[in-house]
Amino acid sequence: MNDYLLISFIMTVIGASTPILLAALGELVVEKSGVLNLGVEGMMLVGAVTGFAVTSITGMPLVGIIVAAITATLAALIFAYLTLTLTANQVATGLALTIFGIGLSSLLGEGFVGFTIDVMGPVFPAGLAEHPVLRVVFGHNVVVYFSIAMIGAVAWFLKKSRAGLILRAVGESDSSAHSIGYSVIGVRYAAVAFGGAMAGIGGSYYSLVLTPMWAEQLTAGRGWIALALVVFSAWRPWRLLLGAYFFGVVMTLELYTKAAGITLIAPELLAAMPYIATIAVLALISLRKSAGAQAPACLGQPFKPST
């Protein structure tokens, strides 16, 4: 592999990793607060379609991204209302949210199939962004830098800030947090909303940057990979970055082997690699003896305060 190919390989990996990184980071915060939202895929699709629609109308991708974050947050709040206020089962509601997101995005996106938009350009000036080597660092659009900055921000928030401490406490023991006087439901609403916004931004990255167009089920199950990543990372933000880029490499390898005309492995098998890797990683993690020890103790449990 020559230098040029290596550089463009890395660029592609970063592109492929960014949306799952964003969605997984949001879900990490949600799970840290003790809520399991399996609707990541659905929220990503809602973000993808609304972001694309708004961008194609306004011509401003940044506005599209913001709208994607807002609409996906609204979808997440439906989930929050059902599971937190009405204490519905989180697994069932999360699955329903995914199905809802698939259906809604198909419906909304019908009129936008075949539209094209301008792709967001790099942040830095052309001298840096198009430099043959330095573009690895400077050649990205704003969302890529945002995703990495968010990793740092979430890591700091969870570890150092008081609000982060309270969020972890709520996920660790909801009844204790309640008896000390914290609003368990309030904290969880906020976390679920944040998870929705991140999933929405992640979803819009597909329709605004990677593809860039709208097609039904555009995210192609990447929301599930994001969910697996959270477990893979043992609920640690920096490890999440590592995991997301690992999956990015697996997904990109498929493209490059195809392009290079390597037929040793069936392309269908290569296309399935990210999902096989997901299953393999999850199985390996479950085999570990301390499996589940790092998970927030109240993950997925409904909380009903006594009055």
């Binding site: 401490l165 660790e172 023991s173 009844s175 204790s176 000390i180």
Partner: peptide
């Protein structure tokens, strides 16, 4: 409390800060 309102996976310091 009779049933401690503590957070198992956190440090003593963090538990006290929460209170």
């Amino acid at each position: 409390f009779q049933h401690f309102s503590l957070f198992e996976a956190m440090t003593v310091l963090e538990n006290i800060a929460l209170g």
